[in-house]
Amino acid sequence: MSTPATVAGRRGLRAGTLIATGVPALLLSIAVATTIGPASLSVGDVLSVVGTRLGFGTTEVSRIGQGIVWDLRLPRILLAAVCGAGLSVCGAVLQSLLRNPLADPFLLGISAGASTGAVAVVVLGAGSGAVGLTTGAFAGALVAFGLVVALATVAGGGTARVVLAGVAGTQLFSAITSYVVITSADAEQTRGVLFWLLGSLSRGRWPDVALTAAVCAAVLVVCLARAGELDAFAFGVDAASTLGVSVRTLRTVLLTLTALLTAVLVAAAGAIGFVGLVLPHAARLLVGPGHRLVLPVTALLGALLLVWVDTLARTVAAPLEVPVGVVTALVGVPAFAVLLARGRWSS
């Protein structure tokens, strides 16, 4: 007879296998993706450039080749991995906290606010050049989140109010963005803004990678420490409270942290949709609902997906680039449909 322990055990084993194969797969993907592009390079070249930069030996790769690997492709690909991981983790946490399977990192007005901030900088020249697009987007995201939280609090708090306030905030900031773009932007600016709104990793440089990776790692650690309490929300807020969770404190801390992470990610790469909404569900279909397993697995899936999707986005219509958010949906939706159908048959 199988005891309940073996059920959790089997899922744990499965997650263990996924992580044990997923981490090498991710590293290999990053290396392979770095070789793909107009200038042809081998995995050996990539490893030798990385080795040299980290202080191990010298490389025979040309200066230009070194520049392409280290300054152009690698930071962009690493940013893709971090964005994928971060957005997925935010989505998983928000879906549990707000008890809403449709919750995603942009639900609380963050992407809309970031867009408004970025547009204000690019189109209106707010801050007169001293403020970059990234800073503008970050500031816009935090302002929007603050407004959404204030509105939710005024409306009496509670899960449903937070979601409604988020929807209202998103609509408001989208409208402001549209208004500014329609009335003030020229065609060139409109195209640039639109591209950024749909998500693009093309501006990824090492400082972006360092910042996003640090914030992402910190948020992941905090969320993992709270994994058991996130599980306790399964039967609602009151049930979580009777299981010993300080609901108000936990919700405040985790909403703020996920908002901060999302703001950092959106500022670096625009609003990349689909990942944060769908990958947590994919992770749950694979390893069950426990957050101790869901969080690392969804982070890994998100990183893998976005590395390859971004590679596709910059090569499929080369030299044109397709916004990465467009590709996440085009590739991700069929993949998710297959997973959904399989999950249903196997249960």
Partner: peptide, 15 residues
């Protein structure tokens, strides 16, 4: 009580 989450009985009890 209801839930959207796909839990087994053992997982519910483990909460």
């Amino acid at each position: 009580v209801g839930t959207e989450v796909d839990l087994t009985v053992a997982e519910v009890v483990a909460l």
